[in-house]
């Protein structure tokens, strides 16, 4: 930390040098003006009349949602089952595809740097695109239904599972792998004996974690027509049947809590 000498010849302690102070000041200035600029863009695009009305709208919405129309829950069992299937089958499919991609993407198991960048590209594109976008896309291609949802979830999961798994592969102990290759094992055998046992717990943990996230995501896929409880949600909102919407919310909330609990338990048991 710099010490300056004041005009009286006394040493003055300062937290930063003058240059660092200026730099920091201008960084803050830049940040704040950027924020204000962004705020202005948003505010220009907003109808403030509606916003002033927000409180009333909110309380109105709440009064329509409560009490929930509980008997509507009976209609929801089949969509809920679809939602669970989308999440589970989608996760399974995603894991199956992510597994080889991760091995191709990890620096220490990839056959060639070129293959590695290709695998990384697959992972990045899958991660950047939200499952809802995948679903929108697939609905226009495959038509509305559960299948589009399953594939959308699977495509989104490749990137997530692939990324975490390849990071786990890059962190394994190198010595057992060295030992297995010293026995004259082939490449696949080295993977099977040296690498796989070391990443298996991480892999199982990541998969369960993704399943839990996927349950959450699959609840809304129906908004774009990809099946599950989101379809009912969409229909209820379009009919302005808010007392049905609140039933759906309660159901989603419960399911997500249960799946989160299961996933936490399983991950805890693995580690």
């Amino acid at each position: 930390m710099p010490v300056l000498t004041s005009q009286q010849g006394m040493p003055v302690w300062r937290r930063r040098t003058t240059r660092a102070q200026w730099l920091q000041f201008s960084a803050w200035l830049l940040g704040v003006s950027l924020f204000l600029f962004c705020w202005k863009v948003i505010s220009d695009n907003t109808m403030w009349v509606f916003v002033e009305d927000a409180g009333r709208q909110g309380s109105d919405l709440l009064s329509r949602m409560i009490p929930p129309k509980w008997e509507y829950a009976n209609v929801l069992w089949k969509p809920m089952w679809d939602t669970l299937n989308i999440a589970t089958l989608g996760t399974a499919l995603g894991i199956i595809m992510a597994f080889p991609v991760a091995f191709l993407a990890a620096r220490n198991t990839t056959p060639h740097p070129l293959v590695r960048s290709l695998a990384l590209m697959v992972i990045v594109s899958s991660r950047s695109i939200n499952s809802l976008i995948w679903a929108m896309l697939l609905v226009t291609i495959l038509g509305p239904g559960v299948l589009a949802g399953i594939i959308a979830i699977a495509l989104r999961s490749i990137g997530f599972v692939g990324k975490l798994l390849y990071e786990a592969i890059e962190e394994i102990h190198p010595t057992p792998v060295e030992a297995i290759s010293a026995t004259g094992a082939s490449r696949l055998q080295i993977m099977n004996y040296g690498v796989l046992p070391q990443v298996m717990p991480a892999f199982a943990g990541i998969s369960v974690y993704r399943w839990d996230i996927n349950i959450r995501e699959s609840t809304v896929l129906g908004l774009v027509g990809a099946g599950g409880i989101g379809l009912q949600l969409n229909a209820s909102i379009n009919m302005l049947a808010w007392n049905q919407v609140s039933v759906i919310f309660v159901m989603i909330f419960a399911t997500v809590l249960v799946s989160e609990w299961i996933s936490a338990r399983v991950r805890h048991a693995i580690i």
Binding site: N108, T109, P174, E178, G184, S186, I190
Partner: peptide, 16 residues
């Protein structure tokens, strides 16, 4: 040294 423990190296030489 890490260079020598590089798995890729060990495996690249072990590939058919």
């Amino acid at each position: 040294s890490y260079e020598r423990r590089d798995i890729a190296g060990a495996m690249a030489t072990g590939v058919a």
